[in-house]
Nucleic acid binder design. Structure first.
Length: 537
RNA sequence: GCCCCUGUAGCUCAGUGGAUAGAGCAUUUGUUUCCUAAACAAAGGGCCACAAGUUCGAUUCUUGUCAGGGGCACCA
């Protein structure tokens, strides 16, 4: 890859000048001043205590490589490199011919990516959709960047909330029922489940045993429907971990370990964990004074289980309600003394508006819009693109009516249209694969075509950076800006002409652009359309 | 009270320790050629909340102020 070659040239230049070794990748930026820009001279200037401009001049002068048209030092000390057309054309060929162009083939380690992890007590809601789409996308980004990513869903299938679910269901069945359970679930789906359970069982009276039976049936039915909801968005997991399994297999082990390490103490009959030793603002209870276990211990045990499976990195994408929860889970992971890197990403709240009015939601009261219902109103492709375009750590507000009204101006159609235009060109020009294109010429002709070619070089680096920073919105931003270049070029230029050579030159770049678009679409999970169906709006 | 997040164009939001701060929508104007205007081009619109500090340089980092949002548990 050209950018790799540039790094090498930069490194060799700095070595020959006896400059300190610095991480070149950190200093990479893509600007309009060249195909490759670096501000490494500023970093070097700090270490060497010299003028950055002076350093930049030396580096620019000594950088070597036949792929470079020029390398220059500018103003305060930037280094800009411009590639030759010949080198860009060779790069277009690489993109076209290598199926996984840009994908890192070195193994950077195993990653566990946990997301969604909803309680099996009701339909998945909007923030689950947000986290699901983001997690799915992030896993693909990690894989492209050289990581071996495992997508995991944790199911809280035991504990109090499941008991409440069972009681809420049985309430609609048992004749001798009492009051509606405190903290019970009120959604209408509960009645549907109750009806289902009633069909398969003899009349049930109010008893602990029957509550558990209803809970089991409820969990099963809800999990099935959650899976279906996820499938609508093509969210698929590699691994499902059940809390019941963790409770049986890992709680004891974890507790013994923590006790041995003396992180546990008793105060007023309650059992505490010294999370303050690792930065939490207060110690947390793992057994209440009535002897009941809190949810915290199974969660630690679950992370113990994760760490034990040899992941180099563990990532949790959590909902907004876990905001105050991150410091204690991080503390507990440090207690386990595993060397895995551990990151928590909070997927912020999704708030719906209808005609500028906020739509208040409460899951427990049964008043909410599920991700299924939303998918019925708005095309999942549109939702995915919208959701991924916003920073995950920021609250996401949008108006359903507006999202429907403005479909004409929706960015997802914009980018799909760019792809469809390219596909049409390829079929008109009878190009089925890169072998139909000739790459034996030395000029790209004009700057607008050159800038599309240069934009393609950015793609892998955009992806790699997301794998480290989790700023997924950079991918949609990239796709939109590439699409914009394509639309603009398409509008201004006739691509297929009688001049075979010129046609071929244009096609060589556009074929590669189409390749990159396709890879990017697959990463964010939107449909790749060879042609657009005209919408009646 | 304590903690976290946010404040960038009329609106919804990107972005960055550096080279002229961007996009979409909205407004005004112009452009229809392979997949079609679901597109392109141009114009207007900004004390990057405010103030101080850090340095060669801050919209970006630090602190404070003001404003908005979210979270605090022997609930899950």
């Amino acid at each position: 890859m050209l950018i790799e070659k540039s790094f090498t040239a930069l490194k060799e230049s700095m070595e020959s000048l006896k400059m300190p070794p610095l991480n070149q990748e950190d200093s990479l930026s893509f600007t309009e001043h060249g195909h490759f820009s670096s501000n490494i001279s500023f970093a070097a200037a700090k270490v060497m205590k010299k003028n950055p401009m002076e350093i930049a001049l030396k580096i620019a002068e000594s950088m070597k490589g036949e792929f470079m048209l020029s390398s220059s030092a500018v103003k305060p000390g930037f280094i800009n490199v411009t590639f030759t057309d010949r080198a860009l054309i060779d790069e277009m060929k690489e993109i076209a011919s290598e199926i996984n162009w840009g994908k890192k083939d070195i193994n950077k380690g195993k990653v566990n990516l946990e997301f969604v992890s909803a309680n099996p007590t009701g339909p998945l809601v909007l923030v689950n959709m947000r986290a699901g789409v983001a997690g799915n996308c992030l896993a693909k980004i990690m894989q492209y960047s050289g990581y071996d990513a495992v997508k995991e869903n944790y199911v809280n299938d035991s504990g109090k909330q499941v008991h409440n679910l069972g009681a809420s269901i049985l309430f609609h069945i048992a004749k001798d029922k009492g009051e509606f359970p405190e903290n019970g679930y009120k959604g209408s789906y509960i009645k549907d489940i109750a009806f289902e359970v009633q069909k398969n069982h003899p009349p049930l009276n109010w008893s602990e045993e029957n509550i558990n039976l209803c809970a089991d049936e409820g969990k099963r039915i809800i999990l099935e429907s959650q899976k279906k909801s996820l499938e609508k968005f093509h969210i698929v997991f590699d691994s499902w971990v059940y809390e019941s399994f963790i409770r049986n297999e890992y709680i004891k082990k974890t507790e013994e370990y923590l006790r041995e390490k003396k992180y546990i103490y008793v105060n007023e009959n309650a059992v505490f964990l010294r999370t303050t030793d690792f930065g939490d603002d207060k110690d947390r209870v793992i057994y209440k004074s009535d002897g009941e276990m809190t949810y915290f211990l199974p969660d630690i045990a679950y992370h113990f289980y994760k760490a034990e499976r040899g992941f180099d990195r563990i990532i949790d994408i959590l909902g907004p309600d876990h905001h105050g929860y991150t410091s204690r889970i991080k503390a507990s992971l440090q207690m386990l003394d595993k060397k895995s890197r551990f990151d928590i990403i909070i997927a912020q709240i999704v708030t719906l508006y209808r005609n500028n009015e906020k739509y208040e939601m409460s899951k427990r009261a049964g008043d909410f819009i599920s991700m299924d219902e939303l998918a019925e109103e708005i095309d999942p492709d549109v939702l995915k693109f919208l959701v991924l375009s916003r920073k995950l750590s920021q609250p996401f507000n949008f108006d359903i009516e507006k999202a429907k009204e403005t479909t004409m101006d929706n960015p997802v159609y914009y980018v799909q249209y760019a792809y469809a235009r390219l596909s049409s060109l390829m079929s008109n020009a009878c190009i089925n694969s890169f072998s139909d294109i000739s790459y034996d010429y030395d000029s790209l002709g004009d700057d607008s075509l050159r800038s599309i070619a240069a934009k393609l070089l950015e793609f892998p680096y955009t992806v790699y950076s997301i794998a480290e920073t989790y700023e997924i919105q950079k991918l949609p931003t990239y796709i939109v800006s590439l699409s914009s270049l394509i639309h603009s070029y398409y509008h201004d230029n006739r691509i297929i002409t009688d001049d075979k050579k010129e046609t071929n030159i244009k096609i060589s770049v556009l074929f590669a652009a189409r390749r990159i678009l396709r890879t990017a679409f697959e990463m964010i999970g939107i449909t790749v359309k060879e042609r657009m169906e005209k919408n009646e709006v």
